[in-house]
Design a protein around this nucleic acid. Structure first.
Lengths: 187, 187
DNA sequence: CCGGATACGCAACTACAGGTAGCGTAATTA
DNA sequence: TAATTACGCTACCTGTAGTTGCGTATCCGG
């Protein structure tokens, strides 16, 4: 216990890894590339992280953060705001690729699965809040389970943009939000 | 034009590639592994396919095929059948990983994008047919665009199972199909 | 403030995947 | 039958993952 792992070196690695991930995607985030970019020796990186996955996980973990959901006064408005925010984020191909790669790894790697779950949870936060507000306003049928309502609301957008890899149009938002608010309404 | 590329060799490669993809996932489907397993020389593989991606694309292309949608007599029943079929397919982790990896590549590679689009289209076929039948029966509001209705229907399931990487329960199917049929109904 | 512990950086190494080049042999087509 | 050419083999280059050994710089505890 004479010398702890240098936090300065760690920060340099993480910063470089985040840079590579954002610029060139997770695939390009190799140990050697991070070593080159950060100026930290490859061997030192391996002293901090067991393998490349651990490094990427640490880097991405520090990047993800929950968004602030706005209160527009109506369920329809709140949902539109949530969907618009979602659309602007997933408009970046690098983001979608990060999502797809992390998902692919999450299916077999429990560590990635946990990181991935946390990332998806952050996506759920603003939507859940919008639905809770709608419930309080009486715009959502109280017999509907909110967690299921979340999948019901985000499903069309996530399915089209993330899974089918197709852009979500303004018209899509109009149609889907309209259908959804009607379906969730009491009575 | 003395000797065409051997179809026997091609079939051996494709078969080996399909085997590797199903057993160990797309990531494990390397040229060297296919060469080992098929007994075909690495150089020969490169005479048939420009790179590893082309081989994987050819192998997967031959695997995907449209499912036969049943006619249960009602929209609700048809949708349940489509969703149940979907759930049993995506229950396999290797399938979901194939999906995620292909999606990741499709975002940057146009060839993969086309293959991926075709694969997703096969998933749409039975659902589209179910909705067309529902429209003919008068169970679907004719003012609703069917392509958008497709995203509306499959969204919750695809979002939960594929994107969030969470199992779809029987109860989920009950709730979602119920909400969906009501939202699509005329009036 | 000094000495022991140890992280750092460097260089060299193994292993494996992608991909290429040359060559003898075997198959196929004309 | 003869020309053509795919096949398989070996060898090679590149790049990445990950490891090892060693000299040096740095940090902590006494």
């Amino acid at each position: 216990m004479a010398r702890p792992l240098s936090t300065a070196a760690r920060e340099k690695m993480i910063a470089a890894a985040q840079e590579v991930v954002t610029l060139d995607g997770v695939e390009a985030c190799t140990i050697e590339e991070v070593a080159r970019r950060s100026g930290v020796a490859k061997t030192t990186i391996y002293r901090h992280f067991a393998d490349a996955d651990e490094l990427v996980i640490a880097a991405v973990s520090e990047m993800i953060q929950a968004t602030v959901p706005p209160d527009t006064g109506s369920l329809q408005g709140d949902l539109r705001a949530v969907v618009l925010a979602f659309r602007s984020i997933v408009a970046h191909p690098t983001f979608r690729q990060l999502f797809a790669t992390m998902l692919s790894r999450a299916i077999t790697d429990p560590d990635y699965a946990e990181l991935y779950r946390r990332a998806q949870e952050l996506r759920h936060v603003p939507l859940r809040l919008a639905l809770q507000r709608g419930l309080a306003r009486g715009e959502v049928d109280p017999s509907i389970d909110l967690e299921q309502a979340m999948y019901f609301v985000q499903g069309p957008f996530v399915g089209k943009r993330m899974v089918d890899n197709v852009e979500v149009t303004d018209h899509d938002i109009d149609v889907f939000v309209d259908l959804i608010t009607k379906a969730l309404a009491p009575g």
